[in-house]
């Protein structure tokens, strides 16, 4: 076994996987493997126990409304509390799309309210009006990085997400809709807990962010070896061009 191991927990991968979330996990796995870093993936489904100590990075993807409801109910059965414990000990938690909404307080769909776990001070509401769909680019500031970095991706969500008083946005929209199509803000971040609407998937064409996640989750003070990212950079550039088209 390698002396460095990234321990990743994919939450509800059978239900929250609609926008090829698997691509994000694959990128983490390969970029660890290419550097000789071990990678341990645990898949946690509805009804399973979650050990908050056993993972460095927790991932929640996107799902259809119906599947998101099933996950929301399970999160209320103790799994959400475990995630709060994991966040408190410094684990990285990344929620994408539906996963982002579940990290907030709640998602209101007409008369119905899907409860979230409140790790991020955000609330999502399904409003009349079209889904927010399209290519998107955002600038983000992250701890340990002197300059803002650009992320390119695709968003497709019916919910409009509002930041609460203690919330900080994850990024500023360069082009696209973001949280609500109005505020110019995208996602939310509280320490190492991050929620975003960017899929596409997010990590393959934003490898600097994938590496930030790996480094932050490992948290061992050792830098990551550089990789040959020419194809990754080309994909990032074409995604940015698609935003401007």
């Amino acid at each position: 076994m390698a002396d460095r191991v990234l321990r990743v927990c994919a939450l509800y991968p059978d239900l929250l996987n609609i926008y090829a979330d698997r691509g994000n996990l694959l990128v983490l796995e390969r970029r660890c493997a290419w550097r000789g870093i071990g990678f341990a993936l645990t898949r946690v489904g509805v009804g399973d126990d979650l050990d908050p100590e056993a993972h460095d990075l927790f991932y929640l993807g996107g799902g259809q409304d119906r599947d998101q409801r099933l996950c929301a109910a399970d999160l209320q059965e103790g799994v959400g509390d475990r995630l709060h414990e994991a966040a408190a000990r410094g684990a990285v938690i990344l929620g994408v799309c539906g996963g982002y909404q579940l990290l907030g307080h709640a998602y209101a769909l007409g008369d119905e309210e899907i409860p979230g776990i409140g790790l991020l001070d955000v609330t999502t509401v399904r409003e009349d009006g079209p889904r927010l769909i399209g290519n998107i680019a955002i600038d983000v500031d992250l701890p340990g990085r002197p300059d803002p970095g650009t992320l390119a991706g695709f968003e497709n969500h019916g919910g409009r997400t509002r930041l609460g008083p203690s919330a900080q946005a994850f990024g500023r929209v360069l082009s696209g809709h973001g949280n609500d199509g109005r505020s110019g803000l995208e996602g939310a971040r509280s320490g190492r807990v991050i929620g975003t609407y960017l899929h596409g998937p997010l990590l393959p064409k934003n490898t600097w962010f994938a590496d930030w996640l790996i480094e932050t989750a490992l948290d061992d003070g050792r830098p990551l070896a550089p990789l040959d990212d020419r194809l990754e950079d080309a994909a990032h550039d074409t995604a940015l061009r698609a935003v401007r088209r």
């Binding site: 691509g23 694959l26 990128v27 390969r30 393959p204 064409k205 040959d228 020419r230 194809l231 990754e232 080309a234 994909a235 550039d237 074409t238 995604a239 698609a242």
Partner: peptide
């Protein structure tokens, strides 16, 4: 295609050596 680079990336992460890929 318009997203040739992303296609190439998918193949790379699937295990195809970049030396076998033309974009």
């Amino acid at each position: 295609g318009t997203r040739a680079a992303e296609m190439a990336l998918r193949l790379k992460y699937a295990g195809v050596a970049p030396s076998r890929i033309t974009v």
